[in-house]
Design a protein around this nucleic acid. Sequence first.
DNA 1: TTGAAAGCGCTAACAA
DNA 2: TTGTTAGCGCTTTCAA
Lengths: 340, 340
Amino acid sequence: MIDIARAAGVSPMTVSRAFKNAGLVSPTARAAVMQAADDLGYVFDSAASALRSQRSDFVAVIIPSINNANFADTVRGLSDGLRARGLQILLGYTDYDVEAEEVLIAQLLRRRPEAMVVTGGTHTDRARVMLDKAAIPVIEMWDLPAHPIGHVVGFSNAAAMGTLVDHLAAIGRRRMAFIGGDAARDTRGTDRRRGFVAAVRRHGLDATRLIDAGPPPISMAEGAAAMADLLERMPDTDAVVCVSDLSAFGALTECQRRGIAVPDQVAVAGFGDYEIAAVCVPPLTTVNPFPLRIGHEAADLILKALDDELPGPTILRVAPELQARASSLGVGQDGRLIRR
Amino acid sequence: MIDIARAAGVSPMTVSRAFKNAGLVSPTARAAVMQAADDLGYVFDSAASALRSQRSDFVAVIIPSINNANFADTVRGLSDGLRARGLQILLGYTDYDVEAEEVLIAQLLRRRPEAMVVTGGTHTDRARVMLDKAAIPVIEMWDLPAHPIGHVVGFSNAAAMGTLVDHLAAIGRRRMAFIGGDAARDTRGTDRRRGFVAAVRRHGLDATRLIDAGPPPISMAEGAAAMADLLERMPDTDAVVCVSDLSAFGALTECQRRGIAVPDQVAVAGFGDYEIAAVCVPPLTTVNPFPLRIGHEAADLILKALDDELPGPTILRVAPELQARASSLGVGQDGRLIRR
DNA sequence: TTGAAAGCGCTAACAA
DNA sequence: TTGTTAGCGCTTTCAA
């Protein structure tokens, strides 16, 4: 910066101001600085800036998996909303492991992010302490934690599953099964299972058809294997709810391979409204949690929190929406959806 | 750090050394430092460390889209390989736009990454100049650029497509079509189209059945729409190659909706070997580019480059593999694949 | 609108 | 194995 200052015939401070593009520098000076910077191939050093100003312009974001279209959409929403303010995302993923999350939080906090976004409300005690002490805005998303750390942008996974079960009950399904992951790890998956069981019982139906498909995330292939298992053990099942659209698609294909009619013999439903749900044949009944909107709202919340415009911890509900499609409803000759 | 030093009864330098966990500190001193740090809730400041040591421990990685399972796998491979050395990924995505890439490169270079990984070999002139001047290891991946900037981990998209066309020709397909994106933007997609045309011509066949499905990435739904278009305009087509498995799956579903038999009437093939290709019915013939391996190899290359163990620019080929499945071959009564 | 002085929190370099 | 000194490249603060 000193070199640029010399070349432009100004002080380093003017160079600094020119790069912050506030209106605090004369157009002449700015032009001279930019010219010199270009000539000398100068690249601004954010680390030095961050150290002195105590503003890193980082927002840390932790998601369970980088390989998931829904979380990717949320990150896009965050990224879009934060970019306008010059905030950059520092991304980490946990592979659905709270211990890994703790390590990640410790690591990311060293970079002095201005805010931290985490997925879900389940964290280790140490993770909670670290986030508390960090004294930065914290946002939990994709859930409605019973004991939030800071702000929240999410929805009740259990309640959303209830909506799906209500739909299946309304179209006459009585022997519903759930395919999901190992209950211990993926808390959102566990919440969905819990919501399934509660809703099925509420309808006075049998809530014991639960297939454990292993540790999350449940892949398409694992969904297919779980469906095979289910069809062997409980062949009279007339509806299957899967923890996500990906496993639901796997389950659907298993039905196709076995010549089992969907939805005539068994209805199939997923969660997430991934693109595949709308495109596959038949299209999948599912629940849209609006991942992009979650990202946008989280970004908004961060910007407001950084501007001290939030009076206290804010809980923002993004209501999921049922997408009833042919995998549960059936399609008539005229192409319109019909009930069983 | 001064506070920790005081509390632990050592100098700040010893605190610094303890946190670098080299074997340069006595176990006693280290324990005292860690205890004090824990008591005081100290969090190491990477920005200050980066400024003084001129080592950011960042590796910048630029991919076209964060919402793509293949690129996500490559990022996982990179992340796994770099984590062991304490290197953290700074991720950016371009939405398949070279201008956006240029902006991103400028932004990321301000963070002083130790290396930069970009996708493909097409960049703006300014981007090339910036990367040159940055004087850090640069890796281009997912392609074999004609004029590499630095190191390369990739494959020829055109050649890989040729393999697919050869396979279709070998099983007797003669009227092949290609579904892909707007030629101007996605260079890997364009290379695949080019490879398709060249290979089809090599077999003495008509290479004019090219469907433009719009700007990349081509979604499942866009693949379905393109297939509908193709079936209307050239109903005698007996094989369709899509720029990716996602569009290929969309095309497959369009055939299912129209009652067109795959592969009997038309073979469908994709690119990428996404999970859906193996799971859908019938499973999709495709090409596996080994995205995770690309990430691992890129990470290896970076570590070697940072250790000055690379004599010069290195070109690492990761050979893609044809995955011939039932969407092109057909399945006999015994479940084994048969030719047409 | 511009500049001078000081210092953010670490670590390189050197010394003991 | 430990400590001292100086300074990384910016920006805050204050003054002109």
